[in-house]
């Protein structure tokens, strides 16, 4: 929860960025569930598959691969055990 907004945080140790933050709200399924999706690596891009209807959202940009829709994304930094999320 950041400034009253639900942020889905993904820790992906295999990736270059290690950590990603996008909105938790699934605009297609209309529920706060993206944090509970499976992480996938498709054609070199890290994405999360929505647990409701399986659309993919790019972790670094929030863009949806199947529909012309986008969820918010945040700048995020890992410093030791602490996570920093930039405000919008």
């Amino acid at each position: 929860m950041v400034n009253g907004e639900q942020v889905a945080l993904f820790y992906v140790p295999e990736s270059e960025d290690k950590i990603f933050a996008i909105g938790n709200w699934d605009p297609i399924g209309k529920a706060n569930v993206l944090s509970r999706g499976l992480i996938a690596h498709l054609q070199g891009v890290w994405v999360v598959a929505s647990p409701l209807y399986k659309q993919h959202f790019v972790l670094s940009s929030g863009a949806c691969l199947e529909e012309d829709i986008c969820v918010p994304h945040w700048q995020v930094k890992l410093d030791g055990d602490d996570v920093y999320i930039a405000g919008h």
Partner: peptide, 10 residues
Amino acid sequence: KGHGCEICKP
């Protein structure tokens, strides 16, 4: 190869 996805992982 790669890191897997929501098809192969489950």
